[in-house]
């Protein structure tokens, strides 16, 4: 077998995609019912294709492809407060995710350091972390709306609260797991505690912290869609809701593709960053 491994995997991916699209197409065609017969033309004119031609509500892959192309062709149009291009919607969502995620990192990493370095702090914080960690981020939404009194900030808060836990726990775990010998060497050399933190602990714990950040951004991207479906206005979640409001399955599937692509890129970016701080002992 002379075909390189990467190429073989790629070919297999394309075959899987092809099979999926063909199955999808066939399923939609199979769902096509019979056209209604003997309808009064005046009555039929008031109905949609589903009622008159028995068309399936599910679009064929080519129709979704056409819709995707429509969105990509003009991603930044602005036709009023409730109708903006997919690019603008994604930018709103990304802005919220990155703001909430950034704020969470600012809080989680220092607090995680503290918890990891001090047994006392670790014990003291533990009950709160254990209690708050399993709460669904969306459960915070009504409280956020009520106290913050701004739906956009509330969405950012929900992102903040959902991305804080993985980062906090991973940072604490990474910091606590730094090898004793290294700390002892630093102490022998009379390095200050602050310098130890930055020169020894941070590099040593960085891969674990980055893993926490990668988990967090994945969760944040999952949550933003749901949060924006709730508060509406702007963002990719609102876009999904608006398409659903029109019962447009084509629009919903297009949105799923965009959400998937952006989520993949976010994960890829953090995976790259993780590679930068990786080390071998």
């Amino acid at each position: 077998m002379s075909v390189p491994f990467g190429l073989r995997a790629g070919i297999l991916s394309i075959v899987i995609l092809g099979l999926f699209l063909v199955t999808w197409h066939l399923l939609v065609v199979a769902q096509q019912g019979d056209a209604a017969e003997g309808l009064d033309p005046a009555y039929a004119a008031l109905l949609g294709k589903q009622a008159t031609e028995g068309a399936s509500a599910l679009p064929k892959p080519l129709e979704v492809g056409a819709a995707l192309w429509e969105h990509i062709r003009d991603p930044f149009y602005d036709a009023g407060p409730n109708d903006k291009g997919i690019g603008i919607q994604l930018a709103y969502s990304l802005f919220r995710v990155l703001t909430g995620f950034g704020l969470a990192a600012l809080v989680a990493i220092p607090v995680g350091f503290l918890i990891g370095m001090s047994e006392l702090a670790s014990r003291a914080f533990n009950p709160f972390i254990q209690l708050l960690k399993p709460v669904s981020p969306l459960a915070w939404m009504p409280l956020a709306l009520y106290t913050i009194k701004d739906s956009s900030l509330s969405a950012i808060f929900v992102i903040f609260i959902c991305s804080i836990w993985p980062m906090l726990i991973n940072t604490a775990f990474g910091v606590a797991g730094v090898r004793r010998e290294w700390l002892n060497v630093a102490r022998t050399l009379e390095v200050s505690r602050l310098r130890t933190a930055f020169a020894v602990i941070l590099p040593a714990a960085a891969p674990t912290i980055l893993t926490g950040m990668r988990i967090s951004i994945g969760i944040a991207w999952l949550v933003i869609v749901a949060a924006e479906m709730l508060v509406g206005g702007t963002g990719i979640g609102y876009f999904v809701w608006n398409e659903w409001n029109n019962l447009s399955i084509t629009g919903v599937i297009s949105a799923i593709v965009f959400i998937g692509v952006v989520g993949m890129l976010l994960d890829l970016a953090l995976a790259r960053a993780a590679r930068l701080v990786a080390y071998t002992e």
Binding site: A36, L46, L47, G48, Q50, A51, T52, G54, A57, L247
Partner: peptide
């Protein structure tokens, strides 16, 4: 009306 339009 949408339910009628979609035949459901």
């Amino acid at each position: 009306q949408r339910a009628v339009y979609d035949g459901v």
